[in-house]
């Protein structure tokens, strides 16, 4: 999607077609995967996932609470990862919608910027359980 978003259309019709493709790609490919991943955050990154059954519930809760305050990116706490991604995804979805409804270089550029921001946040997010 990003290479398409990063290329101006040859004509208004071409821009409109590109915008439609990007929105379709978002709806069919990106959004369902993002929703599935976000539904598991941040629980799938907490050490409690591994520690239940070995430590009592109170200890697991304490460790998870400390872990949620771990800095995992620039000004980004683990507890805020899902919120940040959701916010960025909403920004990308909205920008793609605007690009699709009124295709122009400005709306295309805005959509590119929003999708790129989302990608950077996703790439910088932890991929494994975060240890305290």
């Amino acid at each position: 999607m990003l290479p398409v978003l990063n290329t101006p259309g040859d004509s208004p019709e071409d821009s409109s077609r590109r915008a439609g493709l990007c929105l379709e790609d978002w709806s069919n490919e990106v959004a369902p995967r993002l929703d599935a991943a976000l539904a598991m955050l941040p629980d799938c990154l907490l050490p409690g996932l591994l520690l239940r059954g070995w430590l009592d519930d109170k200890a697991v809760e304490r460790i998870d609470t400390v872990t949620l305050n771990t800095v995992v990116g620039e000004n980004l706490l683990l507890r805020n990862v899902a919120t940040e991604i959701r916010g960025s995804a909403e920004g990308a979805r909205s920008a793609l919608g605007k690009y699709s409804s009124s295709p122009s270089n400005a709306s295309r550029s805005q959509a590119f910027s929003k999708v790129m921001t989302l990608r950077i946040i996703l790439q910088q997010s932890p991929k494994n359980v975060v240890l305290p």
Binding site: P47, L50, L51, W54, L55, A59, R62, I63, V66, N128, V129, L131, P132
Partner: peptide
């Protein structure tokens, strides 16, 4: 990464040592 749940669990326990008493869990593991 190797999907080694036992190793990851021990690692999580070890790094939790300042937050709770991990000795019983370490022994069991």
């Amino acid at each position: 990464p190797t999907e080694n749940v036992a190793a990851a669990t021990l690692l999580a326990l070890l790094t939790s040592s300042e937050l709770t008493d991990i000795q019983p869990a370490i022994n069991k593991l």
